[in-house]
Write a protein that binds this DNA or RNA. Sequence first.
DNA 1: TAGTGGTCTAGACCACCGA
DNA 2: CGGTGGTCTAGACCACTAG
Lengths: 237, 237
Amino acid sequence: MNKYEAISEEMRNRIHTEYYPADLPIPDELTLAAEFNCSRMTMKRALDILVAEGLMLRKRGHGTFIVQAPLRDETVNVISEDSKGLSNLVLGKKVDSKIVSFEVQFPSDEVARHLSIKKDTPVYSIIRLRYVDDEPYVIEKTYMPVALIPGLNEEVLYASIYNYIHQSLELKIGGAHRKIRADKSNILDQQYLDCHPTDPVLEVEQVGFLNNGIPFEYSFSRHRYDKFVFTTVSISK
Amino acid sequence: MNKYEAISEEMRNRIHTEYYPADLPIPDELTLAAEFNCSRMTMKRALDILVAEGLMLRKRGHGTFIVQAPLRDETVNVISEDSKGLSNLVLGKKVDSKIVSFEVQFPSDEVARHLSIKKDTPVYSIIRLRYVDDEPYVIEKTYMPVALIPGLNEEVLYASIYNYIHQSLELKIGGAHRKIRADKSNILDQQYLDCHPTDPVLEVEQVGFLNNGIPFEYSFSRHRYDKFVFTTVSISK
DNA sequence: TAGTGGTCTAGACCACCGA
DNA sequence: CGGTGGTCTAGACCACTAG
């Protein structure tokens, strides 16, 4: 564990246990650095993490303050900042997949553009239905270049594509760009997610890329509106 | 302009103009630091920004790579990471407000909890309908402690609460915690957003806080599903 | 003006990766 | 092994805020 992470963790604990009064600034950086026996830069970096998490705020010339009412994560299904795949998001729960379709085809213009490939580069086209604890949870339409993710088969699709990429192909996920929107449910949603024609869905459009910057996945995930909440924190500059 | 911001901007430009080939790592940090006449730490910090924006990725022991297919921001209405209020998000467009209701009341348990106040602390309860270029855009239900934001009146509500907080009260916004979900439209949505009974809405639940960490706003914004997309970037650790 | 956080430096050592 | 990014230091100077 890095020093700055350890300090950050201790400070997070102090906030949650109300070690510091919430209406006063916490001690200044030099004092804290002395207490934790580190340089001021390292102390600052530890606090940077808590600021990014929305737990504290700094005011130059004044001090560092505790944020008093973060939105609590009381909902069950929350995606925050992970791009590890569903299987690794709902740990401790049973995740199943049903394969609705699995084909290889040439990409449309849109798919080719988002994957940065040519129109004659074959892609997998996959539609999977994912269950969490035997309840339909999300239906995903995924495109991936065949050359980048070789050897994909039904066995992998029943388990976790992300784990296959990590463990079998020994590739690493770099991150993802996402767009989130509400939409009306279509016939497919209603059929597979077991929702009413009047139920909306939450759609997440995503480009996932490897840690060398190459996009490997373009997908649309449509979630039951009553089972998915997306959370974010934003901090003013 | 800080040095690291200036360097970051130049590097962003180089990426967009394809100054560096997309399939090779960019020069290493020491080389770049020498070119920009700065320390390696500063160079690293400049690149940190681009990594956070999802434009590049680092691989320890290997190099720094350009991400090849970020989701383009071709949609009109995008909220990314700002908490500046609607008026400042859609610059260049006409923003109007209609006040649906404006009251002072004691908060519910939920509102009190999210604002970190007691049940006998009065709050404003505001419902506003916001128009962009004369089209109904979002209906907002907002709670704010009266003591924190004194002097709120209809004139302010017709313009921008955020600007009032900044300019008249001379307070500064620290940031916000948000939850995003899809929901069925209710009677109020249909009436004010001019949407059909079968149209869904995208709801954003938000706790906004000042730069001393004190929450000043708890709100629910319900957007027309066809006019609002939420974008995020996430980078693996 | 005193005290805070923000930036920047020059250099050290470490951890990881590929050949 | 050599080269990369990751961490950490000790100190300097700057910018902002409050009283």
